[in-house]
Design a protein around this nucleic acid. Sequence first.
DNA 1: ATTATTCATAGACATGATCTATAGCTCCTG
DNA 2: CAGGAGCTATAGATCATGTCTATGAATAAT
Lengths: 293, 293
Amino acid sequence: MSMNNFELYKVFYWAAKSGSLTKAAKTLFLTQPSVSHAIKQLEDSFGVALFSRNSKGVSLTPEGATLYSYIEQSHILIGLAEEKMAELKKLESGELRIGGSDSLFKHFLLPYLEAFHDEYPGIKLQLIHGTTPEIITFLKEGRIDLGVVRMPIVDPQLEVRESIQLQDCFVAGSRYAELKGELLSMEQLLEYPIILFSRNSRARKAVTDLFHNYGFNLKPGIEVGSVDLLIELARKGLGISFITREFVSRELEEGSLFEVKLDVKMPPAQVGIMTLRNIPLTRAASEFLGRIG
Amino acid sequence: MSMNNFELYKVFYWAAKSGSLTKAAKTLFLTQPSVSHAIKQLEDSFGVALFSRNSKGVSLTPEGATLYSYIEQSHILIGLAEEKMAELKKLESGELRIGGSDSLFKHFLLPYLEAFHDEYPGIKLQLIHGTTPEIITFLKEGRIDLGVVRMPIVDPQLEVRESIQLQDCFVAGSRYAELKGELLSMEQLLEYPIILFSRNSRARKAVTDLFHNYGFNLKPGIEVGSVDLLIELARKGLGISFITREFVSRELEEGSLFEVKLDVKMPPAQVGIMTLRNIPLTRAASEFLGRIG
DNA sequence: ATTATTCATAGACATGATCTATAGCTCCTG
DNA sequence: CAGGAGCTATAGATCATGTCTATGAATAAT
């Protein structure tokens, strides 16, 4: 397994392709003797003549032609590889795989995704939704480039950047219009039917813990599995929904929902963007990260 | 069209394949820092990370994996090319294309061809028959590696090696038994029916010219197109055949033909082996040439 | 003949690949 | 927890190898 210097094959390729050592030299920004020498090295290493030299240039011997048939392919592949890498660098191709929750995609990431896709239409976007632990697993398995979840994240393998803050709150529809403008205590709130996100949500755990710290037990009248339902049920007056305020900004503005204020301050939730520590980011991923950072 | 140093791709290949710069270094008989540096060069040139470094070695980033898919192919092709060249050098493959006349193949070249094929069964033999001018054309067009014809050949583009001598003579069968042992003059010979090779043969021209120089006109009673027929007709007693003695050595020995001696010495004919001047020979061709030289 | 090509060769030179030495990091082990 | 055994990165010195210049030799065209 000796293996010649691959650089020699580049010289051979151009010499064979152009039928002239002089031309090959020009293409490669070398001098003619360099090319001559390189070819000689190859010929010596194989113990076979590759070219016949004549006064107008060179032409391949049968053995040289055999070699060329392989090297040409090989050379083309390298050319394609270099093109591809340039594309990847210029974000003309590649993919960006992001893990997160559907609601974060919809209410937080969507405008960034649109802008990114407009600017780099060659990058394939892949959105993978799952719970926070699932997202972490996907990251570690290399199935996604970025994970977008609620803080806090504590995992030594992960590098987490804090992004925007989200503020959770309680909202209700016209059915509970009497609460508009009021400042409720936890106790007062608990007299109303509460709608919470289903059990394994981190936001739900956070609010349940908060109530628990104040000595109250927050148990929902209704549990739902999607943010859309959380909104819908509150509007229909089935209860008071606990939800991220930013996800209902439209409804709050148009007045179909209003915030039910508590006298206890709800701690804000950070959105964290996770990447694997010490694993280099894809060009696409690092560009995207720069935009949402 | 920048094109990295191809040697870097060799390093990249082994690093990616083994997942370890240290192992790649061992494979390539380099030190680990060299490999590290080479990879860095590639990464810098692309502006893209190719590996993520961890404590157990390295692993490809998505971009690195993309590059690898091209480079692996390319590397395999070069490996195949080098194997192929080694085969060609060791004469384990390749081909040998010889041009000549059927009778020279059969009576002169055959034993060499047999021996050559026994020793190098991987070499494909191609025998192409034609007249001397055709053979020369084939040579110049690169369709054959060697031409085997009768001398003299005068062509500045050709390099001719003289091989064995052939002696032309007249032979007859038992029908003309009375001539056995006799020494005939041209005049006497011409009283018998003469069998000659067909018009465009060089041997025929030579003997016709010889007779002409002595003031005689040699015109055949029968013309044939093959040496076999020349022999056969002489044996059957249809005339006296002009033929190369070496081609009928078996018949002369077994007595089915005998030589009709002339008092004029027939000039010997050289066999010439032609190659193109200044065009390197195939390994197979030069080996074969060495054996018949 | 003369000129303009081509490639080959020899020897000087300098670039750049490679080396040594060292540091930093992670993981494993006693 | 300390120490060792992996791994890769970095810096700087070194020297080999690729590249150059200068020249020659051959061929073809003018």
